[in-house]
Write a protein that binds this DNA or RNA. Structure first.
Length: 483
RNA sequence: GACCCCAUCGUCUAGCGGUUAGGACGCCGGCCUUUCACGUCGGUAGCACCGGUUCAAAUCCGGUUGGGGUCGCCA
């Protein structure tokens, strides 16, 4: 049997990282078994339809490398892959169910349904369709339809008995049919509900493993009843526990930390995000933490999916992202860093690769970059106490002496030789000449050059970045401050 | 509330009857060092609780507690 999995999002506007994880698992399982990964758009709720949302889905999946074999844009043997374009299909299958007695027409309007629910709640009973239209005869039904009454088709759940289904991660689950509701299968607008469409489409598209969020777990018995009513083979179910914000709340868009695009905008790498998501609720059975997509395919298995909700930890994601960033070549990192460097550094005459070099080991996510560079365009106001560094034993006196000596030595460097190697040789030469610890010279130089307690890079790197003129000016300002 | 599910360091997790309960992030400390960071070495911290089964329980069973999911003409 060939493995066929699908990712079936509804186009609601943005890609939730929890959904992305579900897509990832579906993709990994398909690829692992040389199967087929399908993209299906579930747009049966016209109210919630958001313009451009489908493009976001395409774009996101492509960015992270989850390429699909069948889907709306690439076609395939089981199309169309957009549910709104499959409308006649659902009607046809709903009719079959009505024919076989597994479903029935219902003419109850919203008012009656609302009243019914209110009454049930008042009585402390579980809200559930009361079966009002279950017993309508064919004649009564035709008459109501002819009279222009709007209708839906509901699933007829057996009044008694139990339904058992098997989930690949949670095992066998049994529920009493009496706790199940006669859900709407076909809505009055002729489109199916999720409850119906997923069964029809998963069967028609030959889906072997239904991978989805745990919110569908408790509905699965109803889906099984449907598969059985049609005489269809039941697929394997793989329900994934939710991605949480904390122990109580699911990760949500509202909290500003659920959208894939937001992470990318903050400077997280696709590779790191996918790697992190894969390990959130799944483990390879060993201690390994870093995986490329192909490596994930190799390592993936359903057995590794955990049963409990997982809290999304932005701190660990940042660490992983830092690992990916640090593994980049200097050229790759520079290319990614430049847009973020440019958010604070407007000066044109600065060596961008040198700035990037100094940031490379100090960046966990690219959005860490801008605040680190706020001293480059203009020297911040700073207190002279900054020159005092306890561990390095710097004082106002030796700082002033160092600054003067450094100023003189640096002034002697020809502008065309103002590079890291020369600066390093010059300043280290000065240290040697003076017979002091490195920090006696380099701490005050760094302070005068940056006006900051912490900087990416030290005195040598910053002098290089600033350029000769600016560096000398700042040293002069430091000398003046200490004089 | 009813039904279903889940439960190992703060977090992600390994563990499938006998382990000094392992790893990772975080945190703390040492080293490295030109500040910070990187790197490196070390440390901190956990089987929710109560019963039972067993020679032996984090592992099996029951209950309690806590948490999650569902109860829409949303998916």
């Amino acid at each position: 049997m060939t493995v066929r999995t699908r990712f079936a999002p509804s186009p609601t506007g943005y890609m939730h990282v929890g959904n992305l994880r579900t897509a990832l698992y579906a993709y990994l399982l398909a690829r692992k078994h040389n199967g087929v990964f399908i993209l299906r758009i579930e747009d049966t709720d016209q109210e919630r339809e958001v313009a451009g949302a489908v493009d976001i889905i395409y774009h996101t999946l492509r960015q992270v490398g989850l390429l699909w074999d069948e889907g709306p844009d690439v076609g395939g043997p089981c199309g169309p892959y957009i549910q709104s374009e499959r409308k006649p299909i659902y009607r046809e299958y709903a009719d079959k169910l009505v024919e076989s007695g597994h479903a029935y027409y219902c003419f109850c309007d919203k008012e009656r349904l609302d009243m019914m629910r209110k009454r049930q709640e008042a009585e402390g009973k579980q809200p559930k369709y009361d079966g009002h239209c279950r017993t309508l005869s064919r004649e009564e039904r035709e008459e109501l339809i002819a009279g222009g009454r709007s209708w839906v088709i509901r699933q007829r759940i057996p009044d008694e008995g139990m339904t058992t289904f098997k989930d690949e991660v949670f095992g066998e689950i049994t529920v009493e049919n009496a706790t199940l509701d006669d859900n709407v299968l076909l809505k009055s607008d002729g489109l199916p509900t999720y409850n119906f469409a997923n069964v029809v489409d998963d069967h028609l598209m030959g889906i072997s493993h239904v991978i989805r969020g745990i919110e569908y777990l408790s509905s699965s018995p109803k889906y099984n009843l449907l598969y059985t009513a049609f005489g269809w083979e039941i697929p394997k179910y793989v329900h994934c526990p939710p991605v949480m914000r904390d122990a109580q709340k699911k990760l949500s868009k509202r909290d500003g930390d659920a959208s894939y695009q937001d992470f990318i905008d903050k400077g997280y790498l696709n590779e790191a995000l996918i790697n992190y998501l894969a390990l959130l609720g799944w483990n390879p059975g060993n201690d390994r933490e870093k995986f490329t997509l192909p490596e994930l395919i190799e390592a993936f298995s359903i057995e590794g999916i955990s049963r409990s909700p997982a809290i999304f930890d932005p701190v660990k994601l940042a660490w992983l992202n830092g690992e990916y960033l640090r593994a980049l070549t200097p050229e790759e990192f520079t290319a990614k860093a430049i847009p973020f460097i440019r958010k604070t550094v407007k000066r044109e005459d600065v060596p961008l690769p040198a700035i990037a070099a100094v940031l490379h080991q100090r960046t966990e996510k690219l959005s860490d970059i801008p605040p680190q560079l706020d001293f480059i365009d203009t020297l911040p106001a700073y207190s002279k106490e900054l020159f005092l560094h306890k561990k390095s034993k710097t004082t106002f006196e030796n700082s002033l002496a160092s600054l003067r000596a450094a100023r003189e030595a640096l002034a002697a460097i020809p502008p065309e030789n103002w590079d890291h190697a020369t600066l390093h040789a010059t300043l280290m030469g000065l240290v040697e000449k003076l017979g002091v610890k490195n920090a006696i010279v380099l701490w005050p130089v760094r302070v005068a050059l940056s006006g900051k307690e912490f900087t990416p890079g030290g005195g040598i790197e910053i002098a290089h970045i600033l350029g000769k003129d600016e560096a000398l000016h700042r040293l002069d300002a430091g000398i003046e401050k200490l004089s």
